[in-house]
Simulated assay, not measured.
Amino acid sequence: MAAVITSPLEFNVADLYVDLREMAGRHLMLKCEGFNFAGSIKLKAAVEMVDAMERDGRVTPGTTLVESSSGNMGVALSLVAASKGYRFVCVTDVRCTHAARRAMEAFGSEVHVISEPDSSGAYLGSRIAYVRALCRDNPGFVWLNQYANPCNWMGHYRSTAPEIAKEFPDLDVLFVGAGTTGTLMGCARYFRETQPSVRIVAVDSVGSVTFGTKAATRLIPGLGTSVRPQILDESLVDDVVHVEERDTVRTCHELVRRGYLFGGSTGTVVSGALRWLSTRDENLVCVAIAPDFGGNYLDSLYQGKWLADAGLTADSD
């Protein structure tokens, strides 16, 4: 029987996994989260945050939603806003891909691109400052604040983690990329409460300050932060793996040569997971979460000139 929906928010594929054993030589299942109309896992958190604010009366007809995003959350909130009839303003920066910006604008969103870095040399602090100024100067603007909003992780506590637990009741290790840490915290909280034997491994980008490491320039949007997310609780994380962007590129290219066009966040997570697994028991049951696909990265991760200019050309290219 055909599936029929009346809203784009009703569709999300929850149970598709790629077995990476042939590529990696290890039992690693990759949960694909890009099969929805926003194209990434961020749709879950976007819906949860907006729904909660509607219930609380903080978002009403005529409200303008505002958020800082490097790409995927902006696209997800653009879709949610279009579906529900809200105006949405996204504050992003020069690292945001042109495809993501075009998608937001196609949904009817207003996109502000920050080009001046903050004192750390990154852009997140500048983006947040701009969001605060917009909300201060414009009555009716509401900042969702994915970095501090518990509904960011609640979306994954309610959906992503239970979906994995249902398919893999004997799960040993879960690898989750750390951006705003919404997916990480939602999954970590769920398994700590229901299946505490599951080891939670966070995968972050080198140059991110999330877990207390030194800030450095990062060129690939998605994972990593230059301002520690307020929703992060490190006590729920068992291990952290930091991945160089060159390794992200190498892994993305290895996957695409096998027909899997994934985004930068997925390449980072897979690279970190395989490095962590290289010194562990081969019989572990492991799942890694793939936040998105690679369509938004065709002009960067999969474009030779961009890689060469960025100094990120993979060794095999």
Rank of each mutant, 00 (worst) to 15 (best):
V80E: 00
V80N: 03
S83P: 02
S83C: 11
S83H: 01
K84F: 04
G85P: 03
Y86H: 13
Y86S: 03
F88M: 14
F88I: 05
F88G: 00
F88L: 11
V89A: 07
V89R: 02
V89M: 05
C90A: 15
C90M: 05
C90K: 00
T92R: 01
D93N: 12
D93T: 06
D93G: 09
V94N: 11
R95V: 04
C96D: 01
T97C: 02
H98K: 11
A99H: 10
A100L: 10
R101D: 00
M104W: 12
M104D: 04
A106S: 13
F107W: 12
S109H: 01
S109C: 08
E110M: 08
S115W: 03
P117K: 05
G121M: 12
G125C: 08
R127F: 00
A129F: 01
Y130S: 13
R132D: 15
A133T: 10
L134R: 04
L134I: 14
C135G: 01
R136Q: 12
R136D: 13
D137A: 10
N138M: 07
N138L: 08
P139T: 03
G140H: 11
F141Y: 15
F141M: 14
V142M: 07
W143I: 00
W143K: 01
W143C: 07
L144N: 07
Q146N: 10
A148T: 09
A148F: 05
N149R: 05
N149W: 06
P150W: 09
N152H: 11
N152Y: 12
M154F: 08
E163Y: 07
E163K: 08
I164G: 07
A165P: 04
A165L: 08
K166V: 09
E167V: 11
E167D: 15
E167A: 14
F168H: 10
D170L: 10
D170W: 03
D172Q: 03
D172C: 05
V173L: 04
